[in-house]
Simulated scan of single mutants.
Amino acid sequence: MPRNFSYSDAFSRNIGWVAEHEQEILRLKRVAIAGMGGVGGVHLVTLARLGIGAFNIADFDSFDLANFNRQAGAMMSTLDKPKLEVMAAQARDINPEIKLCEFPQGINRSNIDQFLDGVDLYIDGLDFFAFDARRDVFAACAAKGIPAITAGPIGMGAALLVFAPGGMSFDDYFGWGNLPDVEKALRFAVGLAPAMLHRGYLVDARAVDLARRRGPSTSMACQICAGVAGTEALKLLLQRGTVRLAPSGTQFDAYTGRAARTWRPGGHRNPLQRIALAIGRRQLMNKQAQGPDT
């Protein structure tokens, strides 16, 4: 038998960890998420269930079989369907009152201002190798004073960085500039998770190939990312709790059961980061010398 939707009933179980007046604040917030795939789709569902009332969402891709291991909207019934369309339908199914501004062409320099219009928070859900779009969105957030979260799915855990006024900028932390894409990928991987809690259980190093834009992934990591990013979103939107801004970071690894807080003042210029990057470059050179299948 059909039932009428009630916002207060649908999100009543949030109350306790969220005060009633805070739930009403969340109802009025707008969050932007670029990418509706591995982490972006789970971010949308998680925050919709938190009761966030409005979203700007972007993605130009469609679901494929290779997405099945980790992406919230990937299943036989959605094969070849636009990720944006599928995930928007899921969000509306959770909250029929939700307000969605959709960007089916993805994010580019011509629509970033519109994408971030009226937004209280940005959460990164872009593909790992979407360097130009990621740099442009974070730069726009910094210019507009919009807090921006990136939670990377690393191994079987998550690595978190928050960029906001008062902290280090994305550009300054990673120092991409006009570097080659392989170097950008290396700096992003090392900068996201400098504690490297995930390295000990990689069973097939051949699956990681930054030059060919290829890497392994797990559903567990994407789910953990959504929980971590959702919690930071709650704190930022409600202005309570401690938020550690870059160059501080956090990594939690469920496989090892370990958590680490990192602090890399100077970002990519930090001596520890420079050592880690040098090791990474050497490993990449060795891999290239051995060939792609070794």
Rank of each mutant, 00 (worst) to 15 (best):
residue 2 P to G: 08
residue 3 R to E: 15
residue 7 Y to P: 14
residue 9 D to I: 12
residue 10 A to E: 14
residue 13 R to I: 00
residue 17 W to T: 06
residue 23 Q to C: 00
residue 27 R to A: 12
residue 28 L to N: 10
residue 31 V to W: 03
residue 31 V to K: 09
residue 33 I to L: 08
residue 37 G to P: 00
residue 39 V to K: 00
residue 44 L to D: 06
residue 47 L to W: 02
residue 50 L to F: 10
residue 51 G to Q: 04
residue 52 I to R: 01
residue 62 S to D: 12
residue 63 F to S: 05
residue 64 D to S: 14
residue 66 A to M: 07
residue 69 N to F: 00
residue 74 A to C: 04
residue 74 A to I: 02
residue 79 L to R: 09
residue 84 L to W: 06
residue 84 L to T: 04
residue 85 E to T: 05
residue 94 I to Q: 09
residue 95 N to A: 02
residue 97 E to M: 08
residue 98 I to Y: 15
residue 101 C to R: 01
residue 118 G to Y: 05
residue 121 L to G: 12
residue 126 L to E: 09
residue 128 F to Q: 02
residue 137 V to Y: 13
residue 142 A to Y: 03
residue 146 I to G: 08
residue 147 P to F: 03
residue 154 I to W: 01
residue 160 L to I: 03
residue 164 A to R: 08
residue 164 A to N: 09
residue 165 P to I: 00
residue 166 G to L: 07
residue 167 G to V: 12
residue 180 P to Q: 11
residue 185 A to D: 11
residue 194 P to R: 15
residue 200 G to N: 14
residue 213 R to G: 11
residue 213 R to A: 07
residue 218 T to K: 06
residue 219 S to K: 11
residue 221 A to I: 11
residue 225 C to R: 02
residue 232 E to Q: 15
residue 248 S to K: 03
residue 254 A to Q: 11
residue 255 Y to M: 14
residue 255 Y to T: 04
residue 262 T to M: 10
residue 262 T to Y: 13
residue 263 W to P: 00
residue 264 R to N: 15
residue 277 L to M: 14
residue 279 I to K: 13
residue 283 Q to E: 06
residue 284 L to K: 03
residue 286 N to S: 10
residue 291 G to R: 15
residue 294 T to F: 07
